[in-house]
Amino acid sequence: MSEMTTNHAIAAQIPGEDVPRGERRSYWANVRERLGHDPVTLFFMGVIGAAVGAALLAPWVAPHDPYATSMLARLRPVGTEGHLLGTDELGRDMLSRLIWGARTSLLMGILPVLVALVIGGFLGVIAGFMGGAVNMVVMRIMDVFYAFPSVLLAVAISGTLGGGMGSGLLALTLVFIPSLCRVAETAASQIRGLDFVDAARASGAPVYSIIVTHVVGNVLPPVLIYASSLISVSILLAAGLSFLGLGVSPPTADWGQMLSSLRQGIYMQPLVCALPGLAILIVSLSFNLVSDGLRQAMDIKS
């Protein structure tokens, strides 16, 4: 076709357009590159990475046994010899408990959101893409869950199931499904009406192929961004459940649980008592800022 020079093949003869862009780069490669230019997001990703790393490596990283009590060394201040971050009301090492607590807190923060992302996202994409009666049924069921405030719902579910970590996880998952479903549904129903989906249908593509190739890819960014902001909510809700005694049962280290049991010591060692709260704050904030950075990196026009 190279002899077709005049008039037809000239779409390329534009200044600045002669940059070869022949090889394909996946959308995610572009997202990675844009993230690479965003130091703030990278820093907070590092914070999250450190927290997750510490949680995973708790047995090796933690300086003390998080359950070893000492009636002599109770409520020591931050900076105490041998107890870098002090000790709690039973004399347990705070640093070790925070590191071990990260295990449960991060698990409670991330797992419910992940599971809800898969279930809610799936339901939302189906409801949004199919429309009609399917949409009606799915979304009305979600509306029932929506009718309750999320804290109340989480408390009610885990209370009914009898507390404990398992029921806490289940409660949080159920709380997050409707909102993730709603976000996925909105995105999918917008995409359903676009010409490129019609073009895919016109090429004879079956529904599942259209959903996998064209819908999921475009629904994922908004849903992922929303989900990453939910992780901080989940950590806080989990902390709240523990605080109420519905989450993790006492000896286990958990930031919410620690916050709850330390409140008696607040007048003696305010800083030590605030530490679990500080940890929750830092991790939640990091997830929020990373989700913000992700939103910018996933914007195709940036």
Binding site: T6, N7, I10, A11, Q13, I14, P15, G16
Partner: peptide, 25 residues
Amino acid sequence: RDISAIPGSPPDLRALPPGCAFAPR
């Protein structure tokens, strides 16, 4: 017969050619 079209498309204002902006077309 073909319509006598102007080749190419308008330049990117962020990267204008050095001389006359229409020269490349």
